[in-house]
Amino acid sequence: MAASNTTTSNAVVTMDVFRYEPDASELPRMQRYTVPFREDWVVLDALNHIKDEIDGTLSFRWSCRMGVCGSCGMMVNGEPRLTCNSFLRDYYPNPIRVEPLSYFPVIRDLIINLDHFLDKLEEVKAWLIPAEDRELSEGEYRQSPAQLAQYKQFSMCINCMLCYAACPAYGHHSEFIGPAALALAQRYNMDSRDGASDERADVIFSEEGIWDCTFVGECARVCPKNVDPASAIQQAKVEATKDFFKSVLVPWGKRQQPAESR
């Protein structure tokens, strides 16, 4: 579509933006901006317009502008959204309220502190730990399409944390490992090449792992990549229950200890 067709002349949209400037004030406030309305603009474009043309002090994260990097997640009218994926035309002519992702601590304006999330990814060992170590010369780890299908959905996660901002269990208890990290743990547990489910189990089968989840299911609804963390967590609960009763009924069937910490 030609760019000229997509501009509605003189039309504007009102943006109410969450501001938090710790050097200036302890308390956050809402600031109103008026930006041009364009058919093909997303909320992120409007924020960039504000930063470039109106108020250079506004801070927010973004990178790819195409829904793959996962850095532009914010609350748009109370819903966790990728702002590069949310068109102004879907809200126009109503005002648009932009806030940092719910439940996370705010560092500045629309920027949240994501250290906790990164820690959690590390705790659940969200990476492949091969069941058998192989030399490069022995060739690749092979996997059938059916084995790939088991975990593929969970591997689509882009770490945007929208699911955390939708999760009241995380809102109540920030130590909860939470939807994406648990879905990623499950992603590696279900990978036929991986051999570390038992190591991960100590974390994900703990109180702060899957058992903090009350299956609200909002994580699945807001996820832009259709990951369905809620399903991953329910499946892990079933696994944890099997694991528990196995350890009660056959206590001598010792689980293998990991050779050393990896």
Partner: peptide, 12 residues
């Protein structure tokens, strides 16, 4: 972290 005993209650 320890594996929880929650499976007892969750299964019920």
């Amino acid at each position: 972290m320890a594996r929880s005993k929650e499976p007892i209650w969750w299964s019920m």
